[in-house]
Design a protein around this nucleic acid. Sequence first.
DNA 1: GAAGGTAATAGTAATCATTTTCAATTACAT
DNA 2: ATGTAATTGAAAATGATTACTATTACCTTC
Lengths: 160, 160
Amino acid sequence: MPRRRCRWRSEKWWQGEFRGYGYRFTIPRQIILQVLDESKEHLSAEDIYLKVHQLYPAIGLTTVYRTLELLVNMGLVSKFDFGDGRARFELSPKTDQVSHHHHLICTNCGRIIDYNDFVKEELELIKKIEKELARKYSFEIKNHNIQFYGLCDKCSTLKK
Amino acid sequence: MPRRRCRWRSEKWWQGEFRGYGYRFTIPRQIILQVLDESKEHLSAEDIYLKVHQLYPAIGLTTVYRTLELLVNMGLVSKFDFGDGRARFELSPKTDQVSHHHHLICTNCGRIIDYNDFVKEELELIKKIEKELARKYSFEIKNHNIQFYGLCDKCSTLKK
DNA sequence: GAAGGTAATAGTAATCATTTTCAATTACAT
DNA sequence: ATGTAATTGAAAATGATTACTATTACCTTC
C-alpha cells in the first residue's frame, strides 16, 4: 500500500499555483483542497463544508462556495451537475492525483459510477472534435463533459 | 422552402404517445409541445412559460414545470444543464423533428452553439461504450450527454 | 345524456442551493 | 512592524423549483 504523504504540511504544489495567479494561499483554501484530495467521491458544496467544518469549525459555508468557484476557474477542480439540484466537485484530472474518467448516473437512485474504460478512445475522438470545432466555430474549447444516464443494476432489476 | 404544416391542428403523432402511457392529451400539454416544436432554441422553463402564456394566458408556471417533467420522463423532451442555474429543454432527437446534436457552451457569455459534426462518429463510439458498460456494470443506459465548455469567438478575442 | 371518480390544473406558499452584502479580519509585500 | 488590498463569516437576499390545496376537465358507466 502506498504511503500517503502528508501533503498539506509540506509546501504543496498547489501553493505555487495560487502564487502564480496572485491569490493568497489561505488556510480555508488549503483545507478545502485537502478535503477534495482525501475523498475521491463526488462531493457537494455542503458535503465539503461538513468535512471542512470538522477540521476547522471556523470556516463558513460561504467561503466553501467562494473557494470552489475560484478553484474551478483556476482549473484545479471540476464542477458537475448530476441532475439532483446540487453541484458536485472533484479534483481535476490534470492534478494527476485523479485519473481521467466519466460518469454513469442512475436516474432512479442517483448512484454515480466512475468509469475509465474507453477513455483513451474517447479522448482521441474528443481531441479530433475539438480541433475541428475550434476551426469551424472559432470556439476555444477548455473542457468537456460526457455522462450517461440510465438505471444501475439494483434499480434495473427492481423495476421489473 | 418547405411549407410548414400546421401540426397542432391535425391529429398529432404525440397524441398517440400520450394515450399509450395512459396520460391525457390536454391543451396545456399540446401548447407546450407546440412551443417546443416551433422554437429550436434551448428554452428554460420560464422562457417556455412566457411563450405559452402569450398563446394561452390561463396556463400557469407550475403546469409548465410539471408537464416538462412528464415529457422528459416520456422521452419526448431532453433536459440540459448549461451551468447557469436553470434547466433547458429541447424536443428529443427521437422525435425526428430535430437532428441529433451536442452543445458548445461559452463559459463567458453563456452562448450555446449546436453542432452535429462528428455526431455519427460520436454515436458509434457511444454505442460501443454503452454496450461494454452495460455488461461490465450491469448498467442500463437510457441516454447520454456530451458538451464542450470554452470561449466563443467574441469572448475569446475580447479576453486578449 | 347525466353522475361519479380520477387525472390535471392554477395559484400560492414553501423549500433549498447558491449569491450578495458588508463589516471585520488576515496574508503578505514593503 | 505596518499598511493595504484580499479574504472571510454571518446574515439576508435571490431565484429556480416543488409542495400544497382547492378547483376544474375529462372519461367512464349507467
